[in-house]
């Protein structure tokens, strides 16, 4: 779907203060996968995703979307923007329209979609983020932070992009809304076969939702693979300033204390079962604590 070929991006190119934001990136994103990107602040995650819809032009290398080199001359880069939707961090800061309808319709109108079709797409987008239909005439600025976020996400979802990139979509949202939103994106991924790319600082989100994870460090891809495999490399992750899911940490500590606990527990459900198993093991009055 999206392919990076030796991509390097240099800030302030040709000046004294130049700095490589991403270095020599080779990456293949498959259609229909749920990809997570993790990394410390300043590791180049945002720069990487801004290359995926042509917001940034690589200093060196090529980016292909659906096999098309997007920086080839005569290629209309705006086409890529409708194919690859990007939801920025704090997307509620980009709102400007007088009513929610126009706000969500902005992208659709830019894409030249007929007014008759716009309405149904907007309703669909509202359902997606879980907002009622009667808000369309109110001002987008009258809502709470979380609702604004949902409206902003709806404005990208309404365009029904083949790939949707989410740059920390749940930052500052309450746990319930975060959960709901991510589940919706998982549905979008599973049921519609669309590609979802999630930039996140929450290892719990990554392990629960992503099929594959990329670990960025100092502008390079340091690790790549299934989340469950990546999170076994606890020390390497810690060196890069990253963490593993909290629940896993509990079991790793238990192992240190001498319990024969598994080291691959990532979700509450798995933890519950593991605790029951450990409880049954200790039933005979055996103590594992040294």
């Amino acid at each position: 779907m999206i392919q990076f070929h030796n991509v390097t991006y240099t800030y302030n190119f040709n000046t004294d203060t130049c700095k490589d934001a991403i270095k020599n990136i080779n990456l293949k994103i498959l259609p229909g996968e749920f990809l997570a990107i993790i990394g410390q602040t300043g590791s180049g995650k945002s720069t990487l995703v801004e290359h995926m819809n042509g917001l940034k032009k690589p200093t060196v290398g090529e980016v292909f979307v659906s096999g098309q080199d997007i920086w080839q001359k005569k290629f209309d880069i705006t086409k890529v923007r409708f194919k690859v939707g990007l939801v920025f961090q704090y997307p509620e800061h980009q709102m400007f329209e007088q009513d929610v309808f126009s706000e969500i319709a902005f992208g659709l109108r830019n894409n030249g979609i007929a007014e008759t079709k716009i309405e149904s797409l907007i309703f669909e987008a509202l359902d997606f983020v879980g907002l009622p239909h009667d808000i369309l005439n109110s001002s987008p600025f009258d809502f709470s932070g979380g609702q604004k976020r949902k409206i902003a996400i709806a404005s990208t979802i309404a365009m029904q992009p083949d790939v949707i990139i989410l740059d920390e979509p749940t930052a500052g949202l309450d746990p319930y809304s975060s959960e709901l939103l991510l589940k919706k994106f998982k549905d979008y991924n599973k049921n519609k076969g669309k590609t979802v790319i999630l930039v996140s600082h929450s290892m719990e989100e990554v392990v629960r939702f992503a099929d594959r994870v990329i670990v960025m460090h100092n502008g390079e891809i340091k690790m790549e693979g299934e989340p469950r495999k990546i999170f076994t490399k606890v020390e390497e992750l810690n060196e890069m300033g990253l963490d593993v899911p909290q629940i896993l940490k509990v079991f790793l500590e238990l192992r240190k204390l001498g319990f024969p606990a598994r080291a691959d527990i990532y979700t509450v459900e798995e933890a519950k079962q593991e605790f029951f198993r450990l409880k049954n093991l200790t039933k005979g009055g055996k103590s594992f604590v040294k």
């Binding site: 801004e50 917001l55 705006t78 923007r81 939707g85 997307p91 902005f106 992208g107 830019n110 990208t156």
Partner: peptide, 13 residues
Amino acid sequence: ERIMNAQRARGAK
């Protein structure tokens, strides 16, 4: 610049 990119991502010309 950030807002500009966000609008560009929504197809602003």
